[in-house]
Design a protein around this nucleic acid. Structure first.
Lengths: 247, 247
DNA sequence: GAGGTTCCTTGATCCTGATCAACGCGTCAA
DNA sequence: TTGACGCGTTGATCAGGATCAAGGAACCTC
């Protein structure tokens, strides 16, 4: 769990792997030179966190950032009276954090068991100043997150409950890596597991638990999806699901 | 309207002003060295566009970016059946464009008469490669836009119609520069003009025209705001308005 | 195996905001 | 002057999704 205090090896066979987590920080490591990578490796640590673990808290000073190696992280905002909205979902190999702001205005929380490589905030911000490649990677991710957020805005502002649920299912299907799909698929049937509970899906889509549940039931009886043991979804025909999203 | 073909002057008294629009591209020019600024100036042109003018179109290849010098620009997305959602509002001195994507997934349109300084897309993308300072400025703006988008997600996902309208009014109030406020204010009364029509406010808030109109009427009869000639809003007590936003 | 807890589904009812419709007002052109 | 048009308001009604309520299934712990 703690840092590997290994000195940088000039002849390291895999010089672009973080030595702490033994993985390539896609989007981070690739932009660093050997010295920077060595320093980042020294001050990173790999951790496996369980579902529900808070990574960043709103109104709390941020002390560390992470890269997601596996798992799903939700970003959420809350109103004083407790109403909650999930404003983003992040998957490997996303970077988790809000650079250049002493505190995040949102909460980042592991949705599933999640593998992270974590490093100090001020180290990253120093490296950004040194390495324009690093900032470029982060900029590209911010632009991608902005695109995602605006897609979700369209969903929340203008789509019906059924369209929202279909949009969500399609999004998760697209984030399920090939090879992690479920077995035993007839023809080109797609299958995946939902990483979120019904309550979380509701908080993502601006709906209630009951509405999410009912819309899933309706999509099931329309033959668009099959649902097995709550979390497991099968989609006989992706086109059919896509036709339900409204766009 | 067209470019000023002036050679860079070493002893220019205001070297950080774009020579085309005679303004500082806040967020852009400040990050450039003298040569870059000269080139940008040469290939920029200042233009005044009227309300409704499209700056960027969804699914169309992007050929130019702009800085807003004055006015308001809306970013919107549309569903095939015509439902529309405004996913962002931009004010001076924002940069308008989506770097590193050949085409935008959204439409950018002037909401009011707007003054722009416009330059070719590929020039900017080349300068980003040369100047890490420039990319840093753009990254900061993208992060700010991301924060805005996520605030709006909370509004669309979890707030009531009344809260949404109050949130919108407060946002416009905050974007009205001091000094451009309306005259004749008793005590610390705030006043401003709405840059958007009711239909645009509705598209921003995920509501209908009628609901926006009714909620404005209700805020008026509650004494939170006064409305003069449709577009002019006065807020006797900002705290009272803020208390209506839900956060 | 009893009871608790979490997660999910389903039914009944309610209510917020959408929809449909009419009208007022200002502007512009014929 | 007249009518058309854009913009906004208001009223009547409707409906989609929220709320309230109950219960089932899986998984704990004791």
């Amino acid at each position: 769990m703690k840092v590997l205090k290994r000195a940088p090896l000039e002849n390291d066979p895999v010089p672009d792997l973080c030595r702490a987590c033994k993985a390539r920080h896609r989007g981070i490591c690739g932009a660093l030179d050997a010295d920077q990578l060595a320093e980042l490796s020294r001050r990173s640590h790999k951790q496996v966190v369980e579902a529900g673990k808070t990574l960043l808290d709103a109104e709390e000073p941020t002390t560390s950032y992470s890269n997601i190696l596996a798992g799903v992280v939700k970003l959420s905002k809350m109103l004083p009276d407790g109403r909650q909205q999930i404003v983003g979902l992040q998957f490997a190999p996303d970077f988790v954090g809000r650079p250049f702001s002493p505190e995040s205005s949102l909460k980042a929380e592991a949705v599933t068991a999640t593998v992270l490589c974590t490093f100090p905030r001020n180290l990253l911000e120093r490296m950004i100043e040194q390495s324009s490649g690093l900032e470029h990677r982060l900029y590209l991710q911010a632009l991608a997150e902005l695109d995602d957020a605006r897609d979700l805005l369209l969903t929340l502002g203008r789509k019906t409950a059924r369209e929202r649920v279909a949009t969500f299912l399609l999004m998760i299907a697209r984030h399920t890596p090939k090879g992690e799909e479920l077995e035993g698929e007839a023809e080109s049937e797609a299958g995946f597991d939902l990483p979120l509970t019904r309550a979380e899906i509701a908080d993502f889509l601006g709906l209630t638990i009951e509405t999410v549940s009912r819309q899933l039931t309706k999509l099931k009886s329309s033959g668009v999806i099959r649902v097995e043991q709550n979390r497991r979804i099968r989609v006989p025909d992706m086109e059919l699901l896509a036709a339900e999203t409204g766009d």
